[in-house]
Structure formats: structure tokens, C-alpha cells
Simulated assay, not measured.
Amino acid sequence: MKFLIIIPAHNEQDHLAFTLDSLQRQSCKDFKVVVVNDGSTDATSEIIKKYTDQDSRFETVNLEKSLHQPGSKVIHAFKNGLQTQNIENFEIICKFDADIILDENYLQEIDNAFLHHPKYGLVGGLLYIEKNGKWIYEGNSNKHHVRGPVKAYRKECFIAIGGLRETLGWDNIDAVLLKNLGWEEVVLPELQVKLIKIKGADYTVKSSDYYGRYFYFLGLNRFLAYVAASKEAAKSRSVLFFFSIIQSYEHCRSKQLELKISDAEQKIINNERWNTLKKKWLKM
């Protein structure tokens, strides 16, 4: 199966070469990489050129710097890269980050998973970070969710869900929609991906404003948003955190900010959240 790998990159001079080197070392050679240089002001473009000059499988797209909006910025760059390719020439569509290192058999194992399991729609490994000289599991509580830096979609699944959405929560929206359509999201725990840059907002405690906007753009109704807010507040042991999240969520509602999902998709997401709530918390 042939891979199309899109890598959004903004000021990644310290990390990108590690990612591209790991791709060149892959035992699976049937892929194309499109690095989207999203308005970098460092040496990112020069690093990309080293690979595009020597390897025809590597291409680049140069953008003016897009607005910094969590979620939407990276997918805006991804879509610009995707538009330069005819996806009919590929079987697997990947959105990778510019700061990961893949084992040499990573793509081959993803390929094998898709070949042997026709219902697999989204596949990826687990993220590991360096701590005290050792690579340890990044620590996300859900080991069954393919994280944003390592998304690999079967083309038919990618098309069926309407691609990726330029919004906060895009990497959870995709999982809900594909499951609703009968596809499976699968994490292969034996595939360990090294994450060499820790993004502060992604891997530490997030702000109440982030959670409020996240729950809104995910399409959660008021009841489910409040339940989700209470869960995050409980983690922080802060009643004030709960009210701050709700304030952010309600602000988005009052402004009627545009959602990147349809009414039908919003209903699917809420139903999935409600079913999960009943299963985990209400034991129904």
C-alpha cells in the first residue's frame, strides 16, 4: 500500500531532520512525503531542501504563516499539502508531526495492519518522551486513541469522514465519526514513536479557556459540556476551574462561533459521549 505523508512544520529546525531521517530509513519505501512549511522564520526551509534535492519522494509546500489557532492551524497546513496531491494514487493518508522519530519498520507495520484488517480505518503507535535519559510512555490515559502526531488513515475511511476539520478537537472528531461509520481506530502498542519536542499546552495541564473552547468546538451540548467540565475540575480539585471552563464554553455559545461539523455529526458526537458516560459513570 502506498503512503501519502503530510507533515505541517513551523520553525522546526531543531527537530525536522530527525523525522525526515527516520522516514528515509523506513523498510517500507513506497511513500511520498509533503512537508508544509507554514511560514517558518528559522532554517526549516533549508532543512527541507536538503531532502527534496536528493530524494524525489520528498516535496514541499510553502505557506505564509497561518493564524495561530489551536487545532485549526495545523490542519490548515495539512490541507494545503493534501491539495497538491491526487489521493487516488495512495492507499494510506498520514498526518505526522515534524518532531517524531519512527522505528525503521513503522510504516511496514502500519501497512500490515491495514492489509490484514479491512475494517481498520485509523492506525498508529504510542508516543514516548525522553526523561532522565530514558524513553518513557508519554502518559495519555487513553491507550486506544491514535494521537494527533501519528495519524494514519485508510484512504476510504479518510474520505468517508470528510477529511480532517480545521478546529480544536479535530483529533477526537475523526475518531467518533469513523467509528459511527463502522471503521475501527486501532493503536499498536508495540510501535513506539519518540516525541522529541514536548508541546507545553498539549502535554501539561491546560487552561480553563482551552477546555471551554474545546468542548464547544467538539460540538458538546450544554449538559455534556458541564459534565466534562466537572471531570476536569475534579482532576484539578478546583471548583473555580469548573466555573472558568463553563464561562469559556458559554462565551463561545453566546457568540455562536462557527462549528466545523454538521448538525448530524454533532448529534453523532453527543450520542457517543452520552453512551460513554452511561458506560463508565452510570454503569448502564
Rank of each mutant, 00 (worst) to 15 (best):
P8E: 11
E12I: 10
Q13H: 11
H15I: 01
L16W: 07
R25L: 15
R25S: 12
Q26F: 03
V36E: 05
D55E: 14
D55R: 12
S56M: 11
F58M: 09
L63I: 04
S66C: 08
L67M: 14
P70T: 03
P70W: 04
G71C: 09
V74L: 02
A77E: 02
L82C: 02
T84F: 00
Q85K: 14
N86D: 14
I87D: 01
I92W: 01
I93Q: 05
K95V: 00
I100S: 01
I101G: 03
D111A: 12
N112Y: 08
H117V: 11
P118S: 11
L127M: 14
Y137G: 03
G139L: 15
S141R: 11
N142E: 14
H145F: 13
P149M: 07
G163N: 04
L164V: 10
E166W: 04
T167A: 13
I173R: 00
D174H: 05
A175P: 00
A175I: 09
G182K: 07
E184V: 00
E185F: 00
E185G: 03
V187N: 06
K194I: 09
I196W: 01
K199Y: 07
K199W: 07
A201K: 07
V205A: 11
K206G: 04
Y211L: 00
R213T: 01
F217N: 01
L218H: 03
G219P: 03
S230E: 02
K231P: 00
K231E: 10
S238N: 08
I245Y: 10
I245P: 06
Q247I: 03
C252N: 12
L259Q: 13
A264D: 14
Q266S: 13
I269A: 05
K278E: 05
M284H: 06
